[in-house]
């Protein structure tokens, strides 16, 4: 188990190096010059040249990349934001708690509602209820979140005036974005729960459990659900990883200062260190969640832990 974890951590490191390199190269290809963004259109070519030199932007790309990586490894420094002149890591850590809060709230909704609907749907397969749940899930996965978000703001904030339309901090402000964001994950989790349950429900050991005279609800929860968990954990993990990366659209629609919005603003302003830093940060979060999911498999499936 320890060996497995170490191996996964090593491969995580490789992934992060790959991600940092790709992002670095991609950003250098994007049109737009950070120096001109910082100094404005009216700056003299000499002033631009001087700043470029000061920031080391006139060095070859590989040299720049090497310097960037060295700073990360040696000083744990992700660089300094061009626009605010504050350390990138501080900028990210400033907004990350908001993203975590939103992601956790959305995931709680998705796990509870998604698994509940999925189980009901599987147990009552092909019934009217099952069909309704699956159509709703289809809508949930295909409706764009910004559209749902805007509709919700129109209804609950503008028309009914129940909830604040934007901002972050209070519980009221969390409800709408969490529901909007959670809906999509709910749909994904419900569909996966249903199909995974259906696969297990037909197996012989379920018949064995019923033949013991066990109550149906215990058969479903103890024997079927437990064995259907692995694919469900996988999608929950993937969803959570994605949400931690900042739900950009949701954060923009509801004006929530999170990692997603930070990235979008940084891209608009050609604030390369912030973009690089946050992409790297998001990739690390995503990989760590995936590692946690893999470790969870071992808890759920005795076959995994023995291997």
């Amino acid at each position: 188990m320890l060996k497995f974890t170490l191996k996964r951590l090593a491969s995580l490191l490789l992934v992060l190096i790959g991600v940092s390199f790709l992002v670095f190269m991609l950003l250098s290809l994007t049109p737009g010059d950070p120096v001109r963004m910082m100094l404005g259109e009216s700056a003299t070519p000499e002033a631009q040249e001087a700043l470029r030199k000061e920031m080391g932007l006139d060095d070859p790309l590989l040299v720049q990349y090497g310097r960037y990586m060295k700073n990360i490894v040696v000083h744990q420094d992700l660089g300094t934001s061009y626009s605010t002149q504050r350390p990138v890591l501080d900028e990210i850590m400033n907004v990350f708690p908001n993203t975590v809060q939103l992601a956790v709230a959305a995931m709680v909704i998705a796990i509870i509602l998604g698994i509940f609907l999925g189980i009901i749907s599987a147990v009552k397969q092909n019934s009217l209820l099952d069909n309704i749940v699956m159509v709703l899930a289809l809508i949930g996965t295909s409706a764009p979140i910004f559209w749902i978000g805007i509709l919700m703001i129109l209804l609950f904030s503008v028309q009914l005036g129940w909830l604040p339309p934007s901002g972050f901090g209070s519980f009221e402000q969390l409800i709408m974005p969490a529901v909007a964001l959670g809906m999509q994950s709910t749909a994904v989790v419900a569909r996966m729960t249903r199909s995974s349950m259906l696969e297990v429900i037909r197996q012989d050991f379920v018949k064995t459990a019923r033949a013991k005279g066990q109550r149906e609800i215990v058969v479903i929860l103890k024997h079927v659900f437990r064995n259907a968990l692995i694919p469900i954990i996988t999608v929950v993990g993937l969803q959570f990883g994605t949400l931690l990366g900042g739900a950009m659209l949701t954060e923009v629609v509801f004006s929530i200062p999170g990692v997603g919005r930070l990235m979008i603003e940084a891209i608009k302003q050609r604030d390369f260190p912030i973009v690089q830093g946050s992409v790297l940060f998001v990739a690390a979060c995503f990989s760590l969640v995936n590692l946690a999911v893999d470790l969870l498999y071992a808890v759920v499936d005795p076959k995994v832990s023995k291997e």
Partner: peptide, 11 residues
Amino acid sequence: FQDPMTSLNPS
């Protein structure tokens, strides 16, 4: 049951 491979709960 016929098939012992599948008639016990694996977890």
